[in-house]
């Protein structure tokens, strides 16, 4: 069973929920799909090893064969090629690796080279959840291919917890899309409530069953809870607005390790989720 942790707004506590849930269960895999800023391992401190370079092809123009006809540059939707009077220029950072230029070139002058978009790393230790994370290269824009590559490492035989990026755009759907259950993390503030409603729309689009964790509960805006009650959205867990939790977070300490009773609460949340997912529909 795959559980995705998501939120519209950044900084609401996705990583906190993902890491503390994983630690409360033990025998699980944790996937850090926030590849622009992966933070899970700051709380686990595992030794990471690289398991994969995520590559994207880009064109190389053979100037001996190129007739400067410009068909490749006209075809490219991403402006990664420019046909100048004496040369075809390639901008690898704009290339999406579709291979169209190679396909349309009448002179067979296009070959392909690979650029790295980022890497996939793995960390394991006996008493900690297995961690896989993606890391986008700085200056590189495309997060989605790394998230897709990361998801290929999910072992369907074991529970997987997926920490997703913030927002409601394509990378979020790539992270959440294949999950069996989705946990929406929000906070009791006006920004939290507003972005929660956006995230809810995104999750509804995927038809994945979902529930809510309210973080920093008690900050003063009770609309999230009222909304959930009215819309019959299950509130799975409330984490109070507690300076001690904030302090532990700042130090990189998962609060279930320091505050008694919380592992049981997270494990209880997992059981509640399990009972809501029809075992017949769990995705491979």
């Amino acid at each position: 069973m795959k559980i995705a942790i998501t939120s519209g707004k950044g900084g609401t506590g996705k990583t906190t929920v993902a890491v503390n849930l994983a630690l409360s269960l033990g025998e699980v895999q944790l996937f850090d799909c926030d590849v622009e800023e992966p933070n899970c391992n700051l709380f686990l401190g595992l030794d990471l090893e690289k398991v994969e370079d995520v590559l994207c092809p880009y064109p190389l123009i053979d100037s001996d064969k190129c007739t400067l006809c410009g068909v490749c540059a006209d075809f490219c939707r991403f402006n990664a090629l420019a046909a100048l009077p004496r040369k075809v220029l390639v901008f690898p950072s704009l290339c999406h690796g579709c291979g169209g230029c190679r396909l349309v070139c009448p002179a067979e002058a296009v070959q392909e080279e690979s650029k790295s978009l980022g890497i996939i790393e793995k960390g394991m230790s006996g008493n900690s959840p297995d961690l896989y994370r993606g890391l986008l290269n700085v200056g590189e824009g495309m997060a989605t291919p790394i998230i897709r590559a990361l998801q290929r490492h999910i072992d369907p035989e074991r529970p997987a917890i997926i920490d997703s990026p913030p927002g409601v755009a394509c990378p979020v759907l790539a992270a959440v899309g294949n999950a069996d259950y989705c946990v929406l993390v929000t906070e009791s503030t006006p920004f939290g409530f507003h972005d929660f409603k956006l995230a809810l729309e995104a999750v509804k689009l995927t038809n994945i069953p979902f529930g809510v964790v309210i973080n920093r509960d008690g900050l003063g805006d009770s609309r999230v809870e009222e909304f959930c009650r009215a819309e019959k959205v299950p509130v799975l867990l409330k984490i109070p607005n507690d300076r001690r939790i904030a302090r532990l977070y700042s130090e990189g300490v998962p609060f279930v390790e320091e505050m008694p009773g919380w592992k049981e609460k997270f494990a209880g949340m997992f059981e509640a989720i399990k009972s809501k997912v029809d075992p017949g529909t769990v995705k491979a």
């Binding site: 990583t15 800023e37 933070n39 709380f43 700085v138 200056g139 977070y249």
Partner: peptide, 21 residues
């Protein structure tokens, strides 16, 4: 940025990004 391990990690990445550009 906030003085948390995540905040520091993410700050370093965006500092690299501003330096890159």
């Amino acid at each position: 940025c906030e003085p948390t391990v995540s905040g520091i990690h993410d700050l370093k990445r965006v500092i690299e990004l501003t330096a890159h550009f």
